[in-house]
Design a protein around this nucleic acid. Structure first.
Lengths: 204, 204
DNA sequence: GATTTTTTTAACTGTTTGGTTAAACTTTTA
DNA sequence: TAAAAGTTTAACCAAACAGTTAAAAAAATC
């Protein structure tokens, strides 16, 4: 069935609601407050979307598709396993930073056993894993990389970067230890370090 | 102020409530349902704990303390940087598996900006990070390990393992790709792989 | 300009929810 | 054995909440 074009207001609702759901969770999101955040009236929410659940699933479907599309495009633009793996890490990091609702909602949904995550969003995560499997297989064939479990690498990348992005408010609230000398790693430093550790681990 | 000994019922409430909060989140947890899960009447919850928020924070304080105590004890039982780092990874993995509410609630709280995480629980995470810093410093001094950011390593370990533990229900729901040959890594396999990748990354 | 669509307004309904309460019962303690 | 503490029962209250509604206004479309 052909879908009607999304109006500007519906588009705005989707963008703002995604932020609200990420910050408050599905149960913690109150529709009156969400409407205020979207800059529309609550009745307008129900004019465009059937109910809270429908809005939520639509938000996550579009969000995950945007992130995964960005990652796969970045990987496809490279030719060697090494540069593809780096693209995989960097692209996910940047896409997740550009859409912080994605790692945030992913973590909430994992915590809830995934039952609130729409099938369409899960399929997007599967595409990323399939892509990584191909990169690691090419790396073994062409560069003699060590055999490793793609799921482990996927979780180290997605897990570490998601934790880093979502813990930013907490780290900002913690006064840094002055005797330490170590400052909070920036996003770029984090990405570079994850990349380095990963490539070292794979190479002999 | 000296705290009164915790009665058996209060202890049971803390254990069961921790599971319920992990599975449903703070906002998603309904006190009537939580009481049922604890096997007590709702009035009994309020007899022992002032309100929902107090119960929640008490649950997390005890939970994080138990996990971090286990990790630090395991590390202290080892002498070399290499075995200490492995102990750090293995102990966290096993403690988190034994208390799955810990990675689950940690992810939920990160997603909410940490504002619901009691100070006592944050301090526990800080103890773990301090411990890791010492291990990595000793590794550099004694074994010539490469310099790396302890926070990055911490997040790769805690992030990857937390994702693995909390995504188990979702992975179980996804029918494995038969052409793949790769099966879902067990907890032990995941821990061993994270350990291997990490040690390879640190060694020259 | 007429019609249709979109959006707001403001109130509304029924249900859910955290928390309370007094009395009664059970268990523990002194 | 009496007193105190713990637990249940069952109902309760006030507020919060998802979702609805009709009428009116504004914007978009034909």
């Amino acid at each position: 069935m052909m879908q009607k074009p999304v109006s500007a207001t519906a588009q705005k609702i989707l963008t703002c609601a995604t932020e609200w759901f990420a910050a408050h969770g599905y149960e913690g999101a109150v529709m009156d407050d969400l409407a205020g955040h979207c800059g529309v009236n609550k009745a307008s929410l129900y004019y465009h979307f059937q109910d809270k659940r429908t809005l939520y699933e639509r938000c996550l479907t579009l969000l995950y598709q945007a992130v995964v599309d960005q990652v796969l495009a970045a990987v496809a633009a490279r030719r060697t396993p090494k540069t593809r793996l780096s693209a995989y890490v960097s692209a996910f990091a940047d896409a997740a930073l550009g859409h912080p609702a994605m790692p945030t909602t992913l973590m909430r949904e994992f915590a809830s056993g995934g039952k609130g995550l729409p099938v369409t969003a899960r399929e997007q995560m599967q595409r990323m894993l399939t892509c990584l499997k191909q990169i690691l297989a090419e790396g073994r064939r062409q560069l003699g990389w060590r055999t490793t479990d793609p799921l482990v690498v996927h979780m180290m990348v997605v897990g570490a970067l998601s934790f880093h992005i979502t813990s930013a408010p907490m780290r900002a609230a913690i006064r840094p230890d002055p005797s330490d000398g170590a400052k909070d790693p920036s996003h770029a430093a984090m990405v570079a370090e994850v990349n380095r550790l990963l490539l070292r681990a794979l190479q002999a």
